[in-house]
């Protein structure tokens, strides 16, 4: 569910591609390669869930930033809740004691 995770990083704030990859890494998910991330962002953009804009760089060339659209926020909320429910049910089954 990398799509949802990417949407979630953009729910926090708009980010450029590498910042999305870094945030996923920091969150404890596997380091996502550019070859996976950018096609996914292009698809999310084509599906109307994400918008992109170019921002002039402070010290260098301009940079592409991605942000959630209202549609993306709706999908994240609905699908995200479904996944959280699924993850909780899985955890209850695998680790009924709920180890910390």
């Amino acid at each position: 569910m990398l799509d949802l995770c990417v949407l979630a990083t953009l729910d926090e704030r708009e980010r450029h591609g590498y910042a999305i990859a870094s945030r996923l890494d920091e969150a404890g998910l596997a380091r996502v390669k550019g070859g996976t991330l950018y096609p996914l962002l292009a698809r999310l953009q084509a599906a109307g869930l994400v918008d992109a804009r170019w921002e002039p760089g402070e010290h260098g060339p301009s940079r592409k930033y991605y942000a959630l659209t209202d549609g993306g926020r709706t999908v994240l909320r609905e699908q995200g809740l479904a996944w959280v429910g699924f993850a909780r049910a899985t955890q209850k089954l695998i680790d009924p004691g709920g180890s910390p």
Binding site: H16, G17, Y18, A21, G34, Y38, P61, S62, R63, K64
Partner: peptide, 11 residues
């Protein structure tokens, strides 16, 4: 190309 160059430079 510009976006990839940006990614490569930073990562």
């Amino acid at each position: 190309i510009r976006e990839m160059a940006d990614h490569v430079a930073e990562s």
